[in-house]
Simulated assay, not measured.
Amino acid sequence: MTLTACAELVEKGDPDRFLAAMSAPPEARERLFPLYAFNLEIAKAPWITKEPMIAQMRLQWWQDIVGEAAEGAEPRAHEVAGPLASVIQSAQLPVSVFSTMITARYWDLNGDLFTSEEDVIGHIDRSAGSLMVLAALALGASEDQEADIREAAIASGIANWFMAVPAVEAAGRKPFAHGTLAEVKNIADYGLRMLDKQQSTDFGAATPALRAGWRARALLKKAIADPQAVPEGRLDTSEFRRKGSLMLKAAAGRW
C-alpha cells in the first residue's frame, strides 16, 4: 500500500494524468496519484469480467473502501486502498463525489443508451468531472468552487472521451446519442465554451489538479475541424507537442 504503487499504476494506465501530476510539487503528487489510481480501478472494473454481478461487486467494494476511509477505519490490504484512505481522511474529501464517480461506471455494465448530447456530457461530468473535483479539493480548493471546477473539467473529460471512442465502439457500446459528426462537433464546442468561461480563473494551490486537462483545447479544436478523426482514432497529437505544451503550462504555473 504505497504511493509508488499508485504512481506506477497511473504511469501505465493514464499517462496524461501521470505527466500532469509529475509537474506538480511532491506534496501534491502524494494526493493526486492515489485518486488517479482509484479512478483506474473503478474504470476497469466493468471490463475485467464478463459477469455483471462480479463487476457490480467490485464497484461496491470500492464504495465500501471510500465509506470506511471517511469513517476513519483501518484501510483494507490493497495497493491503492491505503494511500486513498490517507488522502480521503487528510483532505476530508466528500464521499458523495466518490459515489457519483462509481455510479457513473455502471453505464459500462448496463448497456444503457444515451438519448441526447446532454446525456453524454452529463456522463462525462459524473466521471471525469468528479475526479477533477476530488483532485482539486485534495489540493486545497473549497467546495464552493465545485461548479467552476466542473466547468473547467468538462473540456478535458470530453477530449478523453473522444480519444476512447474507438475502444468503446469496439467493445460494443455506443459512445454518443446519435453518432453523427455534427454531434461530435457540438459536444466539442460545448467543452471549449466551458473552458473559455473558466480559463482566467485562478485555482491557486489546486492548479495542478486542473492541469490534467492541459491538452483539451488542442484536441477539441481538432475534433471540430475534423470530427471524423474521433471515430477513426486520429485525434491524438504528436509526443513532442503533447509533452511540450505541458512543460510550458507548468513553467508558467498555469493549467
Rank of each mutant, 00 (worst) to 15 (best):
F98N: 10
T115E: 15
L113W: 07
P83C: 00
L131E: 03
S99A: 12
W107D: 04
T115F: 03
L109A: 08
A85D: 01
V95D: 10
S96Q: 11
D108Q: 06
G111D: 09
Q89I: 01
Q89E: 06
L93A: 12
A128T: 04
E79T: 13
R126F: 10
L109C: 09
Y106N: 03
S130M: 12
M132I: 15
V97R: 11
L113Y: 09
W107N: 07
I121G: 00
M132V: 15
G111I: 04
V120E: 01
V95C: 10
H78I: 04
W107S: 12
H123S: 07
H78F: 07
G129N: 13
S96A: 15
A104G: 14
D112V: 14
W107H: 15
D119P: 02
Q92I: 10
T103C: 08
A85E: 00
T100C: 10
Q92N: 12
S86R: 03
H78G: 08
E118V: 08
V120Q: 03
V97M: 11
F98I: 11
Q92V: 14
V120A: 00
F98W: 06
N110I: 14
M132N: 11
D112K: 14
L131Q: 11
L93R: 03
F114E: 00
A128Q: 10
A128L: 09
I102S: 05
G129D: 13
G82K: 00
G122Y: 00
S99E: 13
S90P: 02
G122T: 03
L131D: 05
H78C: 09
E118Q: 10
P94T: 12
G122Q: 06
A85S: 11
S116W: 03
L93E: 05
V97N: 09
Y106G: 06
P83V: 01
P94V: 08
V97A: 06
G82C: 03
Q89S: 06
S86H: 01
R126W: 08
H123P: 07
S90Q: 13
G82L: 02
S116N: 12
E117D: 14
V120C: 00
L93T: 06
S96H: 09
N110H: 13
Q92A: 13
S130E: 12
M132Y: 09
S86Q: 05
G111K: 11
A104I: 07
D125C: 05
R105V: 07
P83S: 05
P83A: 02
A91D: 02
L109S: 06
N110K: 14
S116C: 09
Y106L: 13
S127D: 15
D119G: 07
S90F: 04
S96K: 14
E79V: 14
V87M: 02
S86T: 04
F98P: 04
A104R: 11
H78A: 11
I124E: 05
A128P: 08
H123D: 02
S99P: 02
S127E: 05
I102V: 15
V97G: 07
L113H: 10
V87G: 01
F98L: 07
G82Y: 02
L113D: 15
N110R: 15
I124K: 04
V80G: 04
G111R: 08
M101C: 10
L113E: 15
G129Q: 14
W107K: 04
E118M: 13
S99R: 12
S96E: 11
T100F: 01
L84N: 02
H123T: 02
